[in-house]
Design a binder for these strands. Structure first.
Lengths: 220, 220, 220, 220
DNA sequence: GATGAATGAGAGTTCATTCAT
DNA sequence: GATGAATGAACTCTCATTCAT
């Protein structure tokens, strides 16, 4: 499933002008996501994006202005996709420990299902988040998440299952990071250790490991 | 401190041929490390490397053959640097828990002191370890490390301080990853959470966190 | 007269897209023909071709893909030009001896008028016909010629003016070669013998010589 | 057999300075002959020549001054080799018709045995004999040949076997050319006619053809 | 909204040649 | 006589972007 699909625009009458417009835009975005994920901002080729999108190169400039601007839109969509998936978990309806476990597993599963996301984020760090910093959209996207994790933690402390003093941002970084590295560095790790770490078994073992570690660290 | 400095060739009479050869080679390697780390393989410019190295562009091809080959040499040096630092810890002389703690802290400190290493490894994952896979040098570098961690774990189990059944490779990935993500994604994390995670305080807090988590997970 | 002119595309409205396309393509081809003929494939410079064509260097790659591919197109055009000239002789309407004489004289005259053709063919032999072998176009171009010469020979034998057992391909090689060497090696021959062999008189003397030789060899 | 071997310098005591000098020079010349023949003046690489010769690149400049100067020496050696072979035929001891037949067959055989000669001469024509024109050596080499053919023709006329009025230079060009084209253009001819013209049978058929044609043309 | 043709700057790479030893 | 290191110019080819229709 491409991240693009998650954006979910409502269907339009097939041949209206807006529909064509939208189809081209979406095709470009989907192609750009793949290309930027595969080769990074520097390695990605505008011509290749237009070819994959079945659109004229000129259209990229018409709709997005420049390669860099297109890249930023792709990046924002990627974060929106991840946050959207998390929102659909309705963590606020769950007990604290179940909520954390669900968050961990969902985050890890989502990352595995969307390798482009990892590539894109890695690449954006190469650029010192130069593009992302310009986006208020992304910052707005994350404050509800921080609030939500804070609520879960408070709730857990109140129930006596979590210890005090855990910072929601730090916790989220731990949850995300402990799975991310395994996925993002899967290739080099496989190479230096001479092992295949991309198997489903390796993935499941690691998921169990992550859940254990994090819940142990939170326990009151 | 550049990783290059660690190579430590003995000084030669200043104007001998070997000396000039070495000086040029090393200058190119140091410049290449910075350029590849800053912009990735695609973004790095051969001309920029030669300029920074104070060498003629032709010399890169004379000594290394191609941009790709130079990149691989840089990559191997980076891994060799990290492994060298780990070797110098003499973990086999320490008690099991102290050994693990030392490994964690050293690895995290080294990663922080060498941001180029992180960039380069991230970039190599973008390329699906295409270059690294060709290097037997790197594979040979890592088997002693796996053996060493295995020894520490066995020793800890024998002493009753560690639980059984921990795989050394899995453990190393956890140790490395838990710090790596924080450093490698520092820029995007700071951007999406609107926080500065690059401070010394944030670093120390995370170090403590990592040590706690890993030791808790190992405990018998 | 450039070989290019023979292609004869119909005129288009001066500023239509197709017209511009064609103008650029043809300009590149004409320039390439001169450059490749003057310096060979290795010596020819893409930059020089684009300059002579008044086109951007990029256009050569846009229309032809590579220097090598452009070279092959030029080569095919050259052969097409020669064969076209031969086709326009309508040899099948002539008596056998007149047909052969006409073929010889036309071939020799064409070769003299198109020194680029000789250069290009010589150069392609340096490359062991590596490019030409890929072209089915050229092979298809020559089978009607072989058939035609076969017809002429048969006709001559039936009329009792030619002897039997002449192979059409061998005959064509003799006809072409006996004039070709004089033209293609004119420079070195002039140098080693200290004579000017490029004069019109030398050319005419040789033409007479060729016709005599070949007709004598065919006579029944 | 390389053309180089024909030059036949007298043997020197194996490790004297002159011997080493000579060995390097000869190795360079042999390598240069192959390289220039295979790729022409433009395509030939100085580095490749030195590698093939097992000599340092610098030595080429030490002994010959430049790529162009080396090329001229190679060219002169090639002509000297051909003329040397012709001298060794002692045509002045033969009857006129036998002399001509021997000259034709020897020339054709020599050309076939030395494809580098053909390549080099073709290439020099691409350069409009720019280098060869500088060489008095080559001009001096050919005047005896012209004199010799003149003598044979006069002798044949006196004996009543040849007709009058044949120019020796023209005759030589005919003799050389009629075989040369077949050999020099063997690759393109094979390609355009879809036939293999490089076989021994094709060669023998053509040799017979050439002898017949020329002797027929000379007959009184 | 969409297209193909065009551009100039600059990429990686290779060259013949020379320097210092 | 011989060597390896060094050079700057020039090569083929690719890029993101814009023009005219």
């Amino acid at each position: 499933m491409s991240i693009a699909d998650a954006a979910g625009k409502p269907a339009s009458p097939p041949s209206s002008r807006t529909a064509r417009r939208d189809r081209t835009r979406q095709a470009i975005l989907a192609a750009a996501e793949r290309e930027f994920a595969a080769k990074g901002l520097f390695g990605a080729r505008v011509g290749e994006i237009s070819r994959r999108a079945g659109a004229n190169k000129r259209m990229i400039y018409y709709y997005f202005g420049s390669k860099d601007a297109l890249y930023l839109v792709v990046l924002e969509r990627v974060y929106a996709g991840l946050r959207g998936a998390e929102r659909r978990l309705h963590l606020d309806h769950l007990e604290p420990q179940a909520a954390i476990r669900t968050l961990i597993e969902s985050n890890f599963a989502y990352s595995r299902a969307h390798p482009e996301m990892i590539s894109l984020i890695n690449n954006e760090n190469l650029h010192r988040a130069r593009h992302l910093r310009k986006s208020k959209k992304v910052r707005e996207l994350h404050s509800p998440l921080v609030r939500l994790i804070g609520d879960i933690l408070r709730h857990g402390v109140a129930k006596g299952v979590f210890r005090r003093g855990i910072d929601p941002v730090e916790l989220y970084i731990t949850i995300a990071g402990i799975g991310y590295f395994f996925l993002s560095n899967n290739w080099t790790l496989s190479a230096i250790f001479g092992r295949d770490l991309s198997s489903a078994a390796a993935y499941r073992r690691r998921r169990r490991h992550i859940v254990d570690m994090v819940l142990a660290a939170l326990r009151a």
